[in-house]
Amino acid sequence: MRKLLIAFALAASAATGAIAQSGPQPIERRVGRLEQEMRAVQRRVFPGGQPGVVEPEIRPIAPAGPTSDVSGDALASLAERVDALEAQLRSITGQVEEQGHRTRQLEAQLTQLRADLGGRLDRLEQNAPAVNPAPPIPAGPAPAAPAADDPAAAPSGATDPAEEAYNAGYRLWAAQNFAEAQRALNTAATRYPNSRWTSWMRNLQGRAYLDDDKPATAARIFLDNYQNNPRGERAADSLYFLGQALTRLNRRPEACRVYDELAQVYPNMRDYIRTRLPQARTDARCGAGGGNAR
């Protein structure tokens, strides 16, 4: 929204400069020029219109016709045109400022949500039992093929080493060897931090902890995967499963806020998540219209 305000200011400055440099001109021509500049501002601030915003329209008043004496009806007509332009300018400015205010409020709420979750998860993890490291265990034979809509499923026949590492961790998780899957996926994500599969690895690592009845640790992993790689292919999944972990921890208000953020940040989330979100909100006792749990 700040870009819109800057664009608006530049266009308005250009309009003022053009009028100032044009020298003495008939007042009708100057008002007509101002109307043209206002249309340019309108097109720039409202390109193609905005959903939910009533787009102001420039409605020029017909000129009074050529005259050498600007007085009487001609002067009144020009005054009306200037008044209309000023009113439309105020309307555009007000809408831009209102949208900017709403955007700043949303950003502040999301920042506060992330800070609150981080602090609470830190406290929960302090009370969680430590997990002793163990030597790596071979993946063993692959289990039956996962369901087509399984969020952890990966394509077969991988040739990318990172994808192969993810598939090895997936096989452990699918066989319910959760502790081994946790270690294997953490090692793989550390080894391939810049791969597209890192988002998959961290998300499945969090699921391995969640399925191992360790929701506090799982919540930390899901939150980190979302925050550190919000454009990752499983960032939306991690936000969804973060809500699941918080519900398990009886942190229902926070879970509802997470589900709200999921809907706002990822409106094009995968169908697997979209179809399960209503039940997740019900389990967290979220209000029908969104927001905190009842």
Score class of each variant (00 low, 15 high):
Arg2His: 04
Lys3Pro: 02
Ala9Leu: 13
Leu10Ala: 13
Ala14Asp: 14
Ala14Arg: 12
Ala14Tyr: 11
Gly17Ala: 15
Ala18Leu: 15
Ile19Phe: 11
Ile19Val: 15
Ser22Lys: 14
Gly23Gln: 10
Pro24Glu: 14
Pro24Val: 15
Gly32Ser: 13
Arg33Tyr: 11
Leu34Lys: 03
Glu35Cys: 02
Gln36Gly: 11
Glu37Leu: 10
Arg39Lys: 14
Val41Tyr: 01
Val41Glu: 04
Arg44Ser: 14
Val45Asn: 03
Val45Cys: 05
Gly48Lys: 08
Gln50Phe: 10
Gly52Val: 02
Pro56Val: 08
Glu57Asp: 09
Arg59Asn: 11
Ile61Arg: 10
Pro63Ala: 07
Ala64Val: 00
Thr67Pro: 01
Ser68Tyr: 07
Ala74Arg: 08
Ala76Thr: 01
Leu78Tyr: 04
Asp83Ile: 05
Ala84Lys: 04
Glu86Pro: 02
Arg90Asp: 14
Ser91Ala: 14
Ser91Glu: 15
Gly94Pro: 07
Gly100Pro: 03
Arg104Val: 08
Arg104Ser: 11
Glu107Tyr: 08
Gln109Lys: 10
Gln112Val: 09
Gly118Val: 10
Gly119His: 05
Arg120Lys: 11
Leu121Asn: 04
Leu121Ile: 15
Arg123Thr: 10
Arg123Leu: 11
Asn127His: 06
Ala128Gly: 05
Val131Thr: 13
Asn132Ile: 11
Pro135Lys: 08
Gly140Cys: 02
Gly140Leu: 02
Ala145His: 04
Pro155Glu: 07
Ser156Asn: 12
Ser156Val: 13
Thr159Leu: 09
Pro161Ala: 07
Ala162Tyr: 02
Ala162Trp: 00
Ala165Gln: 06
Asn167Asp: 13
Tyr170Trp: 15
Arg171Phe: 12
Arg171Gly: 02
Ala174Asn: 14
Gln176Gly: 08
Phe178Ile: 09
Ala179Gln: 13
Ala179Gly: 10
Ala184Gln: 12
Ala184Ile: 06
Ala184Thr: 14
Ala184Cys: 05
Thr187Arg: 14
Ala188Cys: 08
Ala189Val: 06
Thr190Lys: 12
Arg191Leu: 12
Tyr192Cys: 09
Pro193Lys: 01
Arg196Tyr: 07
Trp197Thr: 05
Thr198Asp: 05
Thr198Ile: 05
Trp200Thr: 04
Met201His: 01
Arg202Leu: 08
Asn203Pro: 00
Asn203Gln: 10
Asp211Val: 00
Asp212Val: 03
Ala216Val: 04
Phe222His: 03
Asp224Gln: 11
Asp224Val: 06
Asn225Cys: 00
Tyr226Asn: 00
Gln227Val: 07
Asn228Val: 00
Arg231His: 03
Arg234Tyr: 02
Arg234Ser: 08
Ala236Asp: 03
Leu239Arg: 02
Phe241Trp: 13
Gln244Leu: 08
Gln244Asn: 09
Arg248Leu: 09
Arg248Gly: 07
Arg248Pro: 00
Leu249Trp: 01
Leu249Ser: 10
Arg257Asn: 13
Tyr259Gln: 00
Asp260Trp: 02
Leu262Glu: 02
Ala263Thr: 06
Gln264Cys: 06
Pro267Lys: 02
Arg270His: 13
Asp271Lys: 00
Tyr272Gln: 04
Tyr272Ala: 06
Pro278Thr: 03
Ala284Tyr: 05
Arg285Asn: 15
Gly289Tyr: 15
Gly290Glu: 10
Gly291Ile: 11
Ala293Gln: 06
